[in-house]
Design a protein around this nucleic acid. Structure first.
Lengths: 336, 336
DNA sequence: GTATACAATGAAACCGCTTTCAAACAGCGG
DNA sequence: CCGCTGTTTGAAAGCGGTTTCATTGTATAC
């Protein structure tokens, strides 16, 4: 068993009071250099490490932030999580992983947990509107991703320009020469799904193209299903706007099974630019969301909010960028 | 600002002592039913949530476990992490994400941090031998993955049968008809690298095949480099044993660039069976490590160690399994 | 030499909860 | 009715830090 050294032990050994030890450790007040040296020696000798729990109790802050997501297995969320951990570390925060499986009860449970742990903030991804009350009353700053924030509600929002993403992706296909473009439309309960669809529709209108779409989710399985539906409903499709890089992968797989080639017969644009999209062959053209920036910004906003030094605006929009790679190409117009 | 309700407030409202409230909440002793009801009402009325930090301080346990890994971006570690979170949740633990980037100082820092947070356990992946002292003295049970445990050292080890993995993968290629099999050999500083190589060597000996290998790491970039080296050193290779699914992907990419086909010209066997290996096209043949089982077992071992009820053996070996998919196939022997 | 300001210091209070301990009380047998 | 268990109960003492507050000692001003 480990014998734990307390501040009292150090004080006794150094022949000073606990208060003095605390002051040396935190630099909160001047201490006689001679005593300071004795304290430092005593700390080294005993191997004293301040108990963070006791500190948290007094300070009402545990320097913990929660990352509350449906599942960390989602590569997009995973990359954001990595950035959050890194930025948090630099700010002296630790991050607690909270997988909710999209279950409202797990969401509430984790938020309450964080609250009773004196957490200092949370980054949350959820499509559960019932969470607003909990978020407003949890006692720490919350950044929600990919959701617009109601004015009267205290969270901070970070999202990417989904309209622009939908627009860029669609226009890219048009410029490559596609005319029968089908969108694997993301869930309309998410603002991301709605805005990207709007972007796509505007491109269709601009170029006089008839909009086509089939609903999908963002995960691989729903992508497979959607892909099959597209191949049977729109067998002449020549360009696909996937809802994510995962569903782009699904589409590619189904397409290969049907004997069609990418990009010669059908072009595909993914969404997110998860690292995976450049690892596979062919590399996937995709709309890049700045995942690292999202994660870092989220943590910075929390840090700003805690410090209270600057005003933190409630809504933050990040730009997206099209990455043209091997699943799209300029179509050889001599054939058509 | 949120006004926080303490146990004193509840006690006052219910007209009992804090002790009684505590007893009702924890069921640690009998309480008069009438008072119990008053306490429950008061709790509901005030919305009281016990402060976990105060509890932790007294109990010397925060019900937190750390997941200490080089990077959660590694898909293999990510899938294990997901399982850890899930199992931990069921045991009432939260998990703190600790990315170390393989930096010894970040490893130490996180272990000390966990220690001073009264963490209840940690799952650690590291190739840093200097960590032993810290692990032994951190005050909570530690499970290390993919490392054998020295007897005099108090951690618990969970690893997969790497010898078997190397053996199965190599023999599978032989059975598919490959004779010029090259291993992308994993780092020999890891036991996993050593054991898989042994498995491969034994298969070579068994079938009278000359061993060939090029050193690689487990990540995609080192896989690319290794793949190029293999193509130039062993241009007649007909089977590749990748060090991971990532490096298998690297090899596939380089191979496609060189115009060779998989599996017709060269077959590939990956390692890990990360989910990705079935999402890509072609689906990758791979050696499956039971990632979910690894994660869950690690948490269960920690829980067992904490409860102290059963003896926890220090070494745990899990079996691996070959998943034959589209990057390998029975070779048409009429050609050779 | 005395009054005043100021830095250093330790005792004690406190953060919010759990548990010990002893007192109060109820039930029961004799 | 008394003494003996056995159960409820609240006051108080921690858990291990930080901070307040009053005290001491030293330096500066008059």
């Amino acid at each position: 068993m480990i014998i734990l050294v307390t501040i009292r032990d150090v004080a006794k050994l150094a022949g000073v009071s606990q208060a003095t030890v605390s002051r040396v450790l935190n630099g909160t007040a001047g201490v006689d250099p001679e005593k300071e040296k004795r304290v430092i020696n005593a700390v080294n000798e005993t191997g004293f490490k301040p108990n963070e729990v006791a500190r948290s109790l007094f300070r009402k802050s545990s320097r913990i932030i929660g990352y509350v997501v449906p599942s960390i297995l989602n590569l997009f969320l995973n990359e954001i999580g990595r950035a959050i951990e890194d930025e948090a570390f630099q700010h002296g925060f630790r991050v607690i992983l909270c997988n909710t499986d999209e279950k409202p009860e797990k969401e509430s449970l984790y938020i309450n947990m964080l609250s009773s742990m004196n957490a200092d903030g949370a980054v949350i991804i959820s499509n559960n509107n019932g969470l607003e009350a909990e978020i407003s009353s949890c006692g720490f700053p919350v950044v929600v991703l990919d959701q617009k924030i109601d004015e009267r509600y205290s969270a901070i929002s970070v999202q990417c320009d989904n309209y622009q993403g939908g627009y860029l992706a669609a226009e890219h296909l048009v410029q490559c020469g596609c005319r029968k473009i089908v969108q694997m439309r993301g869930p309309q309960k998410y603002i991301s799904g709605v805005d990207r669809f709007r972007g796509y529709l505007d491109v269709c209108e601009k170029y006089g193209i008839e909009p086509r779409y089939v609903d999908s989710n963002y995960d691989f399985e729903s992508g497979l299903e959607c892909a099959r539906k597209i191949l049977s409903t729109f067998p002449d499709a020549d360009g696909i706007l996937a809802s994510s890089d995962m569903t782009a992968l699904s589409f590619y797989k189904i397409l290969c099974q049907s004997g069609r080639r990418v990009p010669e017969d059908v072009m595909i644009v993914g969404y997110d630019n998860v690292r995976l999209s450049t690892l596979v062959t062919p590399e996937f053209t995709t709309v890049a969301q700045p995942m690292e920036k999202i994660g870092r910004l989220a943590v910075q906003l929390i840090a700003d909010k805690i410090s209270g030094q600057k005003e933190v605006p409630p809504n933050h929009m990040l730009p997206v960028e099209l990455k043209a790679r091997q699943t799209t190409t300029l179509k050889d117009r001599t054939l058509s």
